[in-house]
């Protein structure tokens, strides 16, 4: 199984990475930290599962660079591209927020979940709220990973 994690928060990325590797030694794991590098990886490679943050910088933030601009709905943008390009990966949104949106309009995770299920039927699996101190996200994620192994 091949997994791609697209996450810009180094701490969260580290924890997702650790968990995924611990879950199965056999899976191949790639990590990317921006909309652009994540999307390019999806176009160039095949992944079974994508763990995707919602808010991402447009480009990888390197020294002296600021990622151009933040994309508050980068996760949705990537889902759109997955659908448009007919990429076969399954996507789980991993977000720390209870709600997100853009241009001042915010909706809850439940509302987005319903929207994503309707719009991205072939690729979207679930939105999981990642809370650093809690293990609930691990249990939810585990269930999905189990389906692929």
């Amino acid at each position: 199984m091949r997994v791609l994690i697209i996450e810009d928060d180094p701490l969260k990325l580290n924890r997702l990475e650790t968990f995924t590797k611990e879950y199965s030694q056999s899976l191949i794991l790639d990590t990317k930290m921006s909309y652009q590098s994540g999307l390019l990886a999806l176009l160039r490679n095949q992944y079974d599962i994508v763990l995707l943050d919602m808010q991402l910088p447009n480009y990888d933030i390197r020294s002296g660079e600021d990622g151009y601009k933040p994309r508050p709905m980068a996760g949705r943008d990537i889902l759109r591209e997955i659908k448009r390009k007919r990429i076969k990966s399954k996507v789980i949104i991993m977000t720390q927020y209870e709600s997100f949106g853009e241009n001042g309009k915010f909706e809850s995770l439940m509302e987005w979940d319903a929207k994503f299920k309707a719009e991205f039927t072939n690729s979207y699996l679930q939105t999981i709220q990642y809370k650093p101190g809690s293990n609930a996200w691990k249990d939810q994620l585990q269930k999905h990973l189990a389906n692929f192994i």
């Binding site: 810009d8 180094p10 808010q55 933030i61 020294s63 720390q96 209870e98 997100f100």
Partner: peptide
């Protein structure tokens, strides 16, 4: 309250990234 909590969450991600930059 959600707006404030979101702001805090945003700050958490941003500061980690910024500290990474400061580290450099």
């Amino acid at each position: 309250s959600q707006e404030l909590l979101t702001a805090v969450q945003n700050a958490r991600t941003s500061i980690v990234v910024e500290i990474g930059r400061i580290g450099e």
